[in-house]
Amino acid sequence: MSYAGWILLTGALVGISCGLTGVLLILRKMAMMADAISHTVLLGIVAAYLVSSSLDGGSMLIGAMLAGLLTAWLVQWFESSGINTDAAIGVVFTTLFSIGVILISTSVGNVHLDVNHALMGEISFIPWNVIELPLIGPVPSATLLLLIVTIIVALVILLFFKEWKITTFDPALAASLGFPVLLMHYVFMTLVSVTTVAAFDAVGAIMVVAMLITPAASANLWTDRLSHMFLLSALFGVASSSMGYVVAIWLNTSISGSMAFSTGLIFLISYFFAPKHGQIAKRVYKTNEI
């Protein structure tokens, strides 16, 4: 595949995995948690590197999962001891992130891990770092990792669709019916962590928040059906990443920046023109009622 092809495919996978995860983030009102985890996975990655001395996909995923779970658990723990959710998230993620930053600049400063890369990602380097797969040939390792994570995310959401729906809409009822609400919370936090770390190389910790939140928030304005919201969100994610790449080439600017900007653009269009809950549709309904 061509260089541009790999980048578009990588971007599309970021769009799908983040778009799907983002729907649950929005509906569970946990957008702030995405922000937190997108930063604390840095600590997970650094810790994984210190333990395994490599930056391969497997150890990064495990490190990120552990860091994400640690974040979720610490936030939960502070909350249950009476700290505000916002404050708990703010304290936990900045602390864990700063430990990651300190470790990077002292212990692992000479590898290709650096703070800038972690925050912004560098999708244009991805096609050069390939691994050889039997039958298929050379595949960028970041793209392969994203493909695996996207499949996992899609499967976990699809197989447990009704469980996600009930624990998100009415956790009290779900618990009374015997669904493991807390376990599902941690499974979900794990999904957010692996999605984030897989998208890390491509778009970085900050831009991944845009990919997680904005397409899902846009999709929420277009539909009243959960399944449609998942599909639309993934679609918006893919559209944003492709559009972002084209814009970046055209203006010769940052690819991840343009991708995040495109998600914002799609949100803005949805906010005004979405037929279900867009501002214009709302005005029209109101006028009709009067």
Binding site: L27, K29, K165, T168, F169, D170, A172, N220, T223, D224, R225, L226, H228, M229
Partner: peptide, 10 residues
């Protein structure tokens, strides 16, 4: 009041 009635469902 315990649930979000804007949840996308019927």
């Amino acid at each position: 009041g315990a649930v979000d009635w804007d949840f996308p469902t019927n």
